[in-house]
Design a protein around this nucleic acid. Structure first.
Length: 241
DNA sequence: CGCCAGGTGGGAT
DNA sequence: ATCCCACATGGC
């Protein structure tokens, strides 16, 4: 991590916040009306502002798995479907037939694989309920579960347990790579190391930065960029040289 | 139609 | 370590 990267990462965060405002992520489905969530199901306070309940943690973890390489809207539908069918609890997820689970989460794609992932996730949460005592699991522990890779583990740690893990996902690589802050071929762990070294170790900061990168990647920094009106154009290498 | 979306595991190089 | 591929739906 260089001093130049530190400055650029800090500046990029400020420019994105100025352009898009506070995001207040992780989106939860079907929580409208409950304190702490707005009408669209978004948390209205920074992640980590108050400890989450087991049901909320499970739902965040389910979302993290179901949205793997999938549009959030489809993952959201799958979670709503699980709830509608009374399957959205640790106990029922464990005891339901994989084929039934797969049918319920059809909209999120990869439903056979994800049914297995969801079941293993429920096994993990069930085990932790008796031994974990609401403490955050270790990253290694999460990564040892089949179907949970670096991004899913970090999403669970950051948004469900307020552990400061920077999420170095495809959006972060695309935006930060295209701007010129990092090499676009940087690995997940490589980008995460740079961001951890360059920024304060803060869960609310990482949550907000991630949400802003997602927002920016969707509105301007698409696979095919739309540079008109881009809030980062002042510091971006792309098509600017 | 074809491409894309907040990845991951398994297998080969 | 790093590529390559299967996995699958829904929106544009």
């Amino acid at each position: 991590m260089t001093a130049s990267q530190r400055r650029a990462l800090t500046t990029a965060h400020r420019l994105l916040e100025e352009a898009y405002g506070f995001q207040g992520w992780w989106p939860l489905s079907g929580r409208a009306g409950r304190a702490g969530y707005d009408a669209e199901g978004y948390r209205t306070e920074p992640s980590g502002a108050s400890p989450l309940g087991d049901d909320e943690r499970l739902e965040i973890a389910l979302g993290a798995v179901l949205t793997q390489n999938t549009a959030w809207e489809n993952a959201r539908r799958a979670i709503a479907s699980l709830r509608d069918r009374g399957l959205a609890s640790v106990g029922t997820l464990r005891s339901t037939e994989p084929s039934t689970l797969a049918g319920a989460i059809r909209a999120s794609g990869y439903f056979n694989q994800k049914a297995k992932k969801v079941q293993l996730l429920a096994e993990f949460f069930a085990h932790r309920a008796t031994t974990g005592r609401g403490q955050a699991p270790s990253r290694e522990e999460l990564l040892s579960i089949w179907g949970i890779g670096p991004e899913t583990a970090d999403s669970i740690l950051l948004y469900a347990y307020a552990e400061p893990q920077f999420i170095a996902d495809a959006y972060a690589r695309r935006v930060l790579g295209r701007v010129g802050i990092v090499d676009e071929r940087v690995s997940y762990e490589g980008l995460q190391e740079i961001c951890h070294a360059a920024l304060p170790r803060s869960a609310p900061l990482y949550g907000e930065y991630h949400a802003l990168l997602v927002r920016h990647a969707r509105s301007h920094c698409l696979k095919t960029p739309r540079c008109g009106g881009c809030p980062l154009r002042g510091i971006c290498d792309y098509g600017n040289s």
